[in-house]
Computed example of a mutant assay.
Amino acid sequence: METHLFFAIFCAWICLSVPLEFCIAADSIRMDQSISHGETLVSSGQSFELGFFSPGSSKNRYLGIWYKNTPQTVVWVANRNNPIADSYGVLTIINNGALVLLNQSKSVIWSPNLSRVPENPVARLLETGNLVLRDSSNESSESYIWQSFDDPSDTMLPRMKVGWNLKTGLQQKLTSWRSADDPSLGDFSYRIDINVLPYVVLGVGSSKKVRSGPWNGLEFNGVLVLDYLVYKAVFVNNDDEFGPTKER
């Protein structure tokens, strides 16, 4: 008992003696905590990592998510069109509950649009590769104030959707990188377009390079449905959302 008490006191002393950001959970940050150059968040199962990186031969810095064991495979980028020109960058949650990426002059480089203001916000990197902002008292996915899965880059991960949120009008689509050294928005996109009936589009700029037939209630006409060994394709079609997703 005395040993356990001593250990608890020792741990508490350590957390009070060092800067706050070194005592946070490995997969999340809370109000006024931050990560900067050389620091990362790692999902609970060690599958994904979030931090700052420079792609290819570029000297610009970006905030991104990659596979922990394969760091060269970046699956999401926050500030795609607004890089940081030096090694200074900070991801933090400020007093109004907003998740922001700051540069050296404390200017906001990137910040997601929030559906509401969180009371006690926490940003957490999930084992799915999804970065979410929510109230710390509610872990339900229904309570997410924002999630990176709603703002995809060029990679579709399991449980991510490509389609439409019919309540908010949000379109979720994949967009290519400009080049291996530049993750800014490229020319190619993969999306669901809704006219009379929805259909899949591979776009080049504003034009439609390839498109499927319309959704007939079971499948897209003209698209061969395949059974994959790695993942299962699922199509969601209800009053709230419309579009394909995939599950492991």
Rank of each mutant, 00 (worst) to 15 (best):
V42K: 00
E139C: 06
L185M: 12
S47N: 11
S176H: 13
F48L: 00
L114M: 10
S176N: 12
E241L: 14
L102T: 02
V100I: 15
V200R: 00
R191I: 02
N138R: 07
P158G: 08
S212A: 12
I145V: 15
F52R: 00
Q171L: 10
S87M: 13
A26M: 09
L202F: 05
Q72R: 07
C15A: 13
Y231V: 15
P112E: 05
V74T: 02
R248I: 12
T155G: 04
S58C: 13
W66N: 01
F22N: 04
I145G: 04
M160Y: 04
V108L: 03
W76D: 00
P112N: 04
D86I: 11
A12S: 06
A123N: 07
F7M: 13
D150N: 11
L224T: 14
V90D: 01
T245W: 07
K59C: 09
A123T: 08
R248A: 13
D135M: 10
E119M: 12
L16C: 14
K232H: 13
P121E: 11
S176E: 08
S28V: 06
L126S: 00
Y67N: 02
K167A: 13
V236W: 05
F149C: 01
L16D: 09
N113W: 07
K161M: 12
N60W: 05
L114D: 00
S54Y: 04
L133T: 00
H37T: 08
G205R: 01
G205F: 15
G217D: 06
Y88S: 04
I93R: 05
T70N: 12
H4S: 09
A85V: 02
E219L: 08
Q172L: 14
R211F: 06
G169F: 13
N103I: 01
S111P: 03
G89F: 03
T92V: 06
A78C: 09
Q33R: 00
K161N: 11
L170W: 09
F7L: 15
Y231M: 11
N95Q: 09
D181T: 06
I194D: 03
K161H: 11
T70P: 06
L20T: 14
S137Y: 12
V117L: 04
P152F: 12
V162P: 03
T92F: 09
G56L: 09
D181H: 12
N237D: 15
V210I: 10
